[in-house]
Nucleic acid binder design. Structure first.
Length: 283
DNA sequence: AAGGATAACAACCGCAAATGT
DNA sequence: TACATTTGCGGTTGTTATCCT
């Protein structure tokens, strides 16, 4: 079996940053056909992009539900622990943070957390040489066997925007029990988590947190900056479009994507799509 | 103000697994 | 079952923004 010809080899295939126009074409196509069958996307849309590029653009940037911006300390803790347990299985780690993309997590790890861990581990490593073998890492973050926190019953979230977790599911499932056990002693305590012992209850709780976080992201960004990330805005706009809303909504999306001053266009979008943040569409 | 260094993030590349025929 | 094709993943690179001198 030979390796298939790469779509990138084709003549006239565009590379580099995506333009707002291309984003619009891609989003509108996915609105109609849903994600998947990426091979057909450039063929049917006329985008001079390879299928991989289209898929990546969608999954890492355009798809609704993506939370962007600063990682919370809680998210950092999850990433650090999972990385310690799973290694650089970014897709697997991302399945526990469904609002973050694997690319995002990977970038954040490489630019922030790796150094942070290294920095904090250094004193611990020094003390390791002179003290007991239990003093390995910072107790708050980096010891998978630490019993200071709890992520009770935490499970990877199957993200319905992409099929990301499908292919990696077997390996994840094999690790789920270990991760859950790990998190049992890690997750920050919450009243509901303390009372809910079952996986289902905890997963629902986690989902509520995710939903709340998504809602907060939208609200915070709108309120504080007047500018929102495109995925959040797309989510707000695409939802009513998918539900059969008017073409005027989509034209606002176009305006915003094409606009150098997103805050202005967002005023219009927000007026139309208020309340959609916490109700992401499912393709 | 200019230029270099660094950080942050988007995108690409190659491989392997999954899926289709 | 074998092969062809598609998709997903992880590593890496390129570009832009920001900071520092």
């Amino acid at each position: 079996m030979g390796r298939p010809p790469c779509c990138d080899v084709g003549v006239g295939v565009k590379k580099g940053p995506w333009t707002p126009e291309e984003d619009i074409v891609l989003v509108s196509y996915i609105q109609q056909h849903g994600p998947g069958n990426w091979r057909s996307v450039p063929e049917n849309t006329g985008l001079m992009r390879c299928s991989k590029s289209c898929r990546l653009r969608w999954t890492n940037y355009l798809r609704p539900g993506i939370k962007r911006g600063n990682f919370t300390q809680h998210e950092e803790g999850i990433i650090i622990h999972l990385q310690a347990l799973l290694g650089n299985k970014w897709a697997a780690i991302a399945s526990y943070l469904p609002q973050r993309t694997d690319n995002d997590i990977k970038n954040y790890w490489n630019t922030h957390l790796k150094k942070k861990v290294k920095r904090l581990q250094q004193p611990a490593a020094d003390s390791f040489q002179t003290h007991s073998s239990n003093a390995i890492t910072s107790p708050n973050y980096y010891s998978p066997s630490s019993s200071h926190h709890s992520l009770q019953g935490m499970q990877p979230i199957n993200n319905s925007y992409t099929n990301t977790t499908c292919s990696s599911a077997p390996s994840i499932n094999n690790e789920t029990a270990a991760v859950s056990n790990l998190f049992q002693t890690w997750m920050r305590p919450s009243p509901a988590a303390a009372s809910a012992n079952s996986k289902i209850a905890t997963q629902e709780l986690f989902q509520e947190e995710q939903d709340a976080a998504a809602s907060m992201v939208c609200k915070d960004e709108m309120a504080m900056t007047g500018d929102v990330n495109k995925s959040s805005a797309l989510e707000m706009v695409v939802a009513p479009v998918m539900a059969g809303a008017s073409a005027a909504t989509f034209s606002l999306l176009e305006d915003w994507l094409l606009d150098d001053m997103p805050g202005q266009a967002m005023d219009g979008l927000m007026g139309i799509s208020a309340g959609c943040c916490a109700d992401p569409i499912m393709f």
